[in-house]
């Protein structure tokens, strides 16, 4: 006999996979909910922009300040822009963006759909001749999948700018020298895989948020639980996907 926790995990994983499968089945068939998709892009993308930008800026600044003493010890201070740019673009900016979005968007979608479910708004939508899965779920998953990579690119730029300021707190690195070193170091094999993985992060965050909210029950308590588990599972999934992405990139010798 398998332990109960294990069977619950397998059952939940199966349900999420079926939910994701339903997205692919329904999202690309007419009728297309384009207006709602744009509205979700605004909420998910534009409204998350300040939070992502501030976090990315601070991360860039902090990573540079903390890396500097070690490099100075080895007499490699000149490598600071190179080291910081690779770690920010490859790993830190995409993952931090995804985690911020898992917290903000994942919980928002989970709570919104959860409260719609328990107040019968989803049923009302169905009665009004609307496929609630297409209108509520497909649009949100698509918006999360497409806007999180854009936010990640923005986070890359802002964090690199933070890195420039960080490098100038204790030392002196000119604007031109910093950016020349950054662009000399970064190759397409650093930038493209890191952007590609953010599409998967976005898809995972959107899917988990929608799955938890859409299947919410047990009244208002269930709504809170949906929002909470959406954040926990999607954050965990971001790390799992990141690990897989690193392995795949390594196998393809892109590093």
């Amino acid at each position: 006999m398998l332990p109960r926790i294990f069977t619950t995990f397998l059952s939940e994983t199966g349900d999420i996979a079926r939910f994701a499968g339903r997205f692919f089945k329904e999202a690309f068939k007419p009728r297309y909910e384009f207006a709602e998709f744009l509205r979700q892009c605004f909420f998910i993308g534009y409204k998350s922009l300040p939070l992502v930008a501030i976090t990315a800026f601070i991360m860039g600044l902090v990573i540079t300040i903390q890396s500097r003493p070690t490099l100075v010890e080895f007499g490699a201070e000149a490598w600071l822009p190179k080291m910081v740019s690779v770690s920010l673009v490859r790993e830190i900016a995409p993952v931090i963006t995804a985690l911020i979005c898992a917290g903000k968007i994942g919980s928002g979608i989970g709570a919104e759909l959860g409260s719609m479910k328990v107040t019968e708004q989803i049923d009302a939508m169905e009665v009004s001749g609307t496929n609630p899965f297409k209108y509520l779920v497909a649009t949100r998953i698509m918006a999360a999948t497409l806007t999180i990579p854009i936010l990640a690119v923005l986070a890359d730029s802002v964090s690199l700018y933070g890195g420039y300021l960080g490098a100038n707190i204790r030392g002196v690195v000119s604007w031109d020298l910093y950016w020349n070193q950054v662009f000399d170091t970064l190759a397409f094999s650093d930038v493209i895989p890191s952007i590609i993985k953010t599409f998967f992060f976005g898809f995972a965050i959107g899917t988990i948020g929608c799955y938890k909210g859409y299947n919410s029950n047990k009244g208002t308590e269930g709504v809170g639980r949906s929002a909470n588990s959406a954040v926990v599972i999607s954050s965990l999934l971001v790390f799992v996907l990141d690990l897989l992405a690193v392995q795949i990139i390594d196998l393809l010798s892109l590093t």
Binding site: S115, M116, T119, A124, S128, G129
Partner: peptide, 20 residues
């Protein structure tokens, strides 16, 4: 079903008005 639903109104217990 959608065609039939256009001819059948449903008033939900919780009103089910869209908050957004």
């Amino acid at each position: 079903l959608d065609r039939i639903r256009a001819k059948v109104g449903f008033l939900f217990q919780s009103n089910a008005l869209y908050d957004s």
